[in-house]
Structures are given as C-alpha cells and as structure tokens.
Design a protein around this nucleic acid. Sequence first.
DNA 1: ATCGATGCAAAGGTTTTGCACTGAC
DNA 2: GTCAGTGCAAAACCTTTGCATCGAT
Lengths: 158, 158
Amino acid sequence: MNHRFGKGPPKGWPGHFRGQGYRVTVPRRIILQVLGNAEKHLSAEEIYLRSYKLYPAIGLTTVYRTLDLLIKNGVIIKIESGEGRARYELAGRVEGINCHQHLFCVNCRNFLDISDLTEDEIAVIKKMKERLLKKYGFTVKSCILQFYGECKNCKKKE
Amino acid sequence: MNHRFGKGPPKGWPGHFRGQGYRVTVPRRIILQVLGNAEKHLSAEEIYLRSYKLYPAIGLTTVYRTLDLLIKNGVIIKIESGEGRARYELAGRVEGINCHQHLFCVNCRNFLDISDLTEDEIAVIKKMKERLLKKYGFTVKSCILQFYGECKNCKKKE
DNA sequence: ATCGATGCAAAGGTTTTGCACTGAC
DNA sequence: GTCAGTGCAAAACCTTTGCATCGAT
C-alpha cells in the first residue's frame, strides 16, 4: 500500500483538498473529470485510457495513485467483483438508495452493470439500511447488489 | 480463462457430479473436505496449504482449477474483499438463495461479512432473481449485497 | 526553493496457461 | 484404452514500488 498520502480526509473533493497538503494537478483534474462523466463503473485501465485521450502524458501509475487518494478521502469507492480487476465509482453517485446491480457471469466472466429496482425492492433495501444501523451500528451510504450466475450467451452455447 | 470444464452443471456437489463428465479424484475430494471444514473464508493459498497437509502431492494449479469448477457449478462462491486475493466459501443453500451481506467501511476499510436476511428480504431477492432471468436471461446462482458506509468504530472516533 | 506529484521501468503477488504425464472411467 | 485431470514451470495479469525529474505552492 501507498503510505505517502495524508490521513486527514477532506470532507469533499474538489473543495477541501487545498490546505490539506494536496496539490491540484492536471492529472488529478482529468481523472476526476473522467470519473464524473463515466456512464458505468470503470476499471483502472479504462480510467487510464479515457484520461489518456484528454491528456496523453498521463501514466497508469498516476491513475492508481490518484484512485488510492480519492478512496482514502471517501470521494470514490472501489468495487471488486471477482473478475480480477477492480472498478471505481464516485461515492456520491451511489448515495442513498441509488443501488446498482451487477450481473457477473461465472462462466464467461462478463459483467453487466444495471440499475433497475422496483418499488418493493427499494423499500426493502431501505429497511435493511435501518436494520444494519440498529444491529451493527453501520451507516449505509451506498450499496451494490452483486449477482453471480450464468448469462444469456453462455446458456445458448450449451 | 479455462475452457476445459464441461458445461452441464450438476445440480449439486457431491452427488450429481458423476455422469456429467466430471471425475471423482483425490485432489477434488480433499479440496471439498477442506472447504467443508473451514471456519472462515479461505484464500486459494490457504486452501492449498490445508490440502497439502492431507495430500502433499497436490498442486496450487489444481486448487485454482477445482475452485473454478466448483464456482461454475454453484457449489462455492468467490468473495473479493479488496485485499488483493480472493476468498472462497461453500455456498449455503437457503431456499435456493446464497446471499451474503458485506459491510465495507469506506473510512477504515474494514470489512464485515454477515449473513442475516429477514423473510421479507429473502422474498424480494427471490423475486429479483426471477426478474433478472426474464429481463436479462441471467440465471442467478448466488449474490452478495455490498453496503458501503461508516462503521461503529469510526463514528466513535469523530 | 521546497517537497508533493509524476512517469517510467521494474518488481510484486495472484491467477492462468502450455504441455507431457497420470489415473478414473 | 480414452481422455479428463494433474503438476510443474512459465506466462499473464493487475497493482505497487524505486527513483530521478517535474511543477504547484
């Protein structure tokens, strides 16, 4: 792990980052912009490629280090779904009950990121949030439902 | 990816595995035994080490391949918690729904793995399974509910 | 002028693959 | 006897680290 970043997390990003010892640099702004425009959860490589288009001098290392920094400051969350690489998303986006569902095919390892919950489902998740707070003292800020199974295409091939 | 394993999943393991083209071998029995006796979620290396004690001829490759096979057949689930290696656990069959809840603290990055669902929650997840099958042609074998937020300890410290 | 941030190259650790051999059926 | 399963070594893969340089403050 990288221990170079400070511990006192600013309450938001951007905004509180100056004066925390953090510097505003081009790569950081680019990466944040890419994350802000993402239509789905991006892997580090995807973030790198999109950043590269905007700023070809950027390096993959910087992407990883910036993501680390953003995670430590609660700006983004890291999602591991078993596909061998992590994905990242702005934390604010999944705030509240805006819950993503990931369909992960254990056969072809493809990954579908959907966002479609019924009223019933939202209600139950809200209740779950309250229950987790009471029982475990855990305040839920966002959630992701990961489903593992077999996708359409893999069934056809059998 | 490993394409060597057959596609027709047996309905359970052990039991239905013969006659599906799968062979009952010593390494497979050992690995299954280790998983059955596990008191926690084990990493591939831990599974290898425990299997090694029972059967020193075993190789790490076989562990990975067997785990892959078991995942594809819904016998175990793979859990990634952000520590850089995956962990594996027997999929408990609670009315056809293998569902874990992970509470992930975005502040201290600690991780709580609970397994406690109410009747309501189980019912809704069942419905969700059916809906995902109809709408996306995706057959759910197991699921993990990932909650991101702040844990008890971190709240105290503020 | 500092010292945090960067990019490259190299290393690290986990997981996968190629291949010849073994053993379950 | 077949061919799925195995183990070893090597490769592939994602991620982190060392280090000299750059640049925000």
